[in-house]
Design a protein around this nucleic acid. Structure first.
Lengths: 235, 235
DNA sequence: CGAGCCCTTGATGCATTTCAACGAATGTGG
DNA sequence: CCACATTCGTTGAAATGCATCAAGGGCTCG
């Protein structure tokens, strides 16, 4: 149970997660000390689960390398993907304090993450209110993202939703010149956007035929005409 | 700026909102005193807005009579309804602490609500941690509801979504014997479930023809066969 | 009692799913 | 390193669900 808080990757993820270097916040140093003693670094193989829906929500995770997918599967096998998370995002907080996770989290690649005990975290926040507030703000950011996703799901056609998704990924993945690798499968994308794999594929092909994107190795996306796509998704 | 915390309707709404009588929580009496001095009771006419997307998020509301709809409208006029709220629900919290509302809230009927200043509320939570925790749990409940909504939106056919909605309303509205009045219009329902008014109407007709529901005065719904509907929505 | 809005329903066309086939990519054991 | 098995991505054809457009009926309120 110990975390090397001086490791660059750890520092970067925490900074990215809280929106600012922890040292610069009131109580930040104390928080780092807490993490050093009460958090640890876990490694998850690709396709394995960090946490499962229904499990007691004991931990909060912050990925420091790799990416994660949040999903829920119904008894009939229908799956909804809620979100894709990357380095510096946070997961495990969207559940009421004592209860169970209400989704599962799956590693899309080999993953390294900071794992923190929820109980310890919340006890700490009672003493360090500035940090606590920053933390609770994260929950609200997640909620805000869900609202955006819900809006997209309710309003647009399948191909528009896909275009929206590709632009969103461009913003959230660390990439240059509108070129990036999608870490998730077509099926994952389809389940995220509420469509079938076929429709997702046809969407990719349609955007390619319009010349707005290029696809090299199935996962390497190049955005050619951002303006056209932006215009397209806003009708 | 003063609220009568001894009024039955106010007491009931607060109890329902926090899941327990405030007096029974550590710091609850102090919280009630705060509300008495820093909250007030507002009245909103039907179809008027409690708050608008983009406005500074200065207040939190708890309806004590009437119902509310949360919505967002895009520049192209497309609207997504996020939620319907009733007595004892809370709204205004799903936004990061200093920022703006990210949806609008419209009264579906003549409405009475408790209005509380966010700033005052959050300052208080720094001192009364048990109350603060209960409050933050509310945010998580909202998030949890959003996840459920998103799941429904992504998975089911229009008619299944409608059936799901009618069962959900039965649970949330205060009704007996599976009979209740819908406070919102067909258009509102359609925008909530991501379909057109036509489709929503056809859905009502289809459920009626199957004998699962009855409709008297357009807004009076009677659930005849809950089991059949439950089975229907789970495929 | 009339005007206007909301609800309902029909006809048509388009978007998406479904079912199925095939090629491309990926992994595995010989 | 190759042959094979397997999964993943793409595409076609048919069927279906849903949106759109349009009209008519019912409710509500001045």
């Amino acid at each position: 149970m110990s975390l090397d808080i001086n490791k660059i990757s750890v520092k970067n993820s925490l900074t990215s997660c809280f929106g600012t270097a922890l040292e610069s916040i009131n109580g930040g140093d104390e928080f780092l000390a807490l993490l050093a003693n009460n958090a640890d670094e876990v490694h998850i193989d690709s396709h394995d689960y960090l946490l499962n829906e229904g499990e007691s929500a004991d931990y909060v995770f912050i990925p420091i390398s790799g990416s994660v997918m949040l999903e829920r599967t119904a008894s009939n096998g229908a799956r909804q993907v809620y979100a894709f998370l990357f380095t510096g995002n946070i997961l495990g907080l969207s559940t009421s304090s004592i209860a169970k996770y209400n989704y599962s989290a799956k590693a899309l690649s080999d993953l390294t993450a900071i794992r923190i005990n929820r109980q310890v975290l919340e006890e700490f926040f009672k003493r360090a209110l500035d940090i606590g507030k920053k933390y609770h703000t994260r929950t609200e950011v997640v909620l805000s993202a869900m609202l955006d996703h819900l809006f997209v799901m309710g309003q647009r056609t399948a191909h528009q939703r896909l275009a929206h998704f590709l632009l969103d990924m461009e913003n959230r993945l660390f990439c240059h010149k509108g070129q990036y690798n999608l870490p998730m499968s077509r099926q994952d994308i389809a389940d995220y956007l509420g469509m079938t794999v076929s429709t997702a594929c046809r969407g990719f092909t349609a955007l390619k035929k319009k010349g707005w994107i290029s696809i090299s190795s199935n996962s390497l996306i190049i955005i050619n005409d951002r303006d056209a796509m932006t215009h397209y998704i806003t009708d």
